[in-house]
């Protein structure tokens, strides 16, 4: 299989992204929120939880891909 050429975000994009995230994290400390469960009261929950979740998902998918893939039939198309 041919490798997809990686799209590397440039420095400017990286900086904008991280700055925006930081801004939102700070903003999150000041808005009035209504936590339901306790865990969502942890600061920045909406940032670190999805990050963690996505990382776990990717690792999980990678593992499954090693066991069950790749599938080499007409479906590959």
């Amino acid at each position: 299989m041919r490798q997809n050429a990686l799209f590397s975000p440039g420095k400017r994009l990286w900086h904008t992204l991280l700055a925006a995230l930081l801004l939102m994290l700070v903003a999150g400390l000041f808005v009035e929120s209504h936590p339901h469960f306790g865990i969502d009261a942890v600061p920045g929950f909406n940032a670190w939880f999805p990050m963690l979740a996505c990382a776990v998902l990717v690792v999980l998918a990678r593992g499954l891909g090693r066991i069950f893939g790749p599938r080499e039939d007409e479906d590959g198309r």
């Binding site: 909406n46 990050m51 069950f68």
Partner: peptide, 30 residues
Amino acid sequence: VFQLQLLLATTVVFFLLRGHLVKMLGSLID
């Protein structure tokens, strides 16, 4: 704010892990 946190964080993770995502492209047995 919380929704934007989620979206931005996911985007950051995506760019961090993009190498892995490319390597595992394929099809799984279903």
